[in-house]
Simulated scan of single mutants.
Amino acid sequence: MTLKPMLHIHISPGNKKDGRCEYLLFEVKIRAIPAQMRMAYRGMHTMHFELRNLRHFVALINHRSFVLAAHSVNLSQPAFSRSIQALEHQVGCELVHREKKGLPPTQQGKVLLDYANEILRKSDELTFRIAAFNSNAQSVLNFGCGPVAAASIVPKAIAKLLQNHPHAKTRFVVDKWNELSLKLNRGEIDFFISNTLYFEDDKNHQIVPLAPRKWCLYAHAEHPVFKETPNRYNILKYPIGCTLGVRELLSSYLSEPDYIPSLLCENGYSIMDISLNSHTIGCSALLPMIEDNIKKRLLRVIEPSDFQGAQQDRNILNGIISLKGTMTTPLRQTFIQLLQDYDQVPH
């Protein structure tokens, strides 16, 4: 018989410093173990982790320097070192190789880092959602968006919103559409901005449309594809990097429903960088930076001679997606109007 230890979450107040209250986040307890199995767990003890120690450990891994990490969390280096030592004492092992350049994490440190990032993310999310209940829920925005919106209209709309409503609380996550859909259904976000292709016939969702965004094929200006008339056949001679939201549109153009590109990536800017530095043909939304590089003649748009689709086939339909029947607050209505206003501005 295989038994899995039970993980129990225990939250209790810790030290209050600089107006912030840290918490002892969790303790691990082994329960319900039959007598014949107790020997296997002898010597195991309850571990208490403080959020501040986990934050300090993540800062150390990010900065790879005790001095820089201590500065980033506004601590003296001796106090920061004591925090890391306390965490190592709790887990019973070293978490970084101090004798190696760059302070790489030990194997135990790598395991702890994965959990620490997840715990801190959940802690921040919990703090935000509790604050939403404790304050005026009408002044809270909790939403998600894809990388394109995060790099274009969302920052502009949030900047204007906070200028007009400085006490509003705002939190947004950037992820691919399927993960955002899961977060929406779990109640982790209230709405998200993404390609509406997968939600148009879904009776459980409502969509506020945004302006369609063109997608295109492009390559660096000296790409050999431009030495002949671009068409479907000579395009396929080269690797193609494509964003997730455009893959089906590209497959339709290629008349290959199951086409899988050489690179599939959610971030169109990553594909653009790869295209600038290789013979990979990019396929994504026509992002502002791509347009800038086209104007600088670093990139060229590929206009295939055998493209037979109607003009709307070259568009990505974007929108604001939420569950039907959810409450619309005045702040959300204001923010959606700002998104629509900025979306109409030429990119």
Rank of each mutant, 00 (worst) to 15 (best):
Y218Q: 07
A219D: 10
A219N: 06
H220P: 02
H220R: 15
A221V: 12
A221W: 11
E222V: 09
H223M: 03
H223C: 04
P224M: 08
P224C: 10
V225Y: 11
K227H: 14
E228Q: 10
T229L: 13
P230C: 05
R232W: 02
R232I: 11
Y233C: 13
Y233I: 14
I235Y: 03
L236C: 09
L236T: 06
Y238K: 07
Y238V: 03
Y238C: 10
Y238F: 15
P239Y: 12
I240G: 06
I240D: 04
G241S: 01
G241E: 14
G241D: 02
C242G: 06
L244V: 09
L244Y: 01
L244R: 05
V246D: 02
R247N: 07
R247C: 06
E248C: 01
L249I: 05
L249A: 11
L249V: 01
L250I: 00
L250E: 03
L250H: 05
S251E: 03
S252P: 01
S252Y: 06
S252T: 11
Y253W: 14
Y253S: 02
L254N: 12
S255C: 07
S255Q: 15
P257K: 13
P257N: 10
P257E: 07
D258M: 09
Y259H: 01
Y259M: 11
P261S: 07
S262Q: 14
L263Q: 07
L264R: 01
L264V: 00
L264F: 00
L264Q: 01
C265N: 13
E266P: 05
E266H: 02
N267F: 00
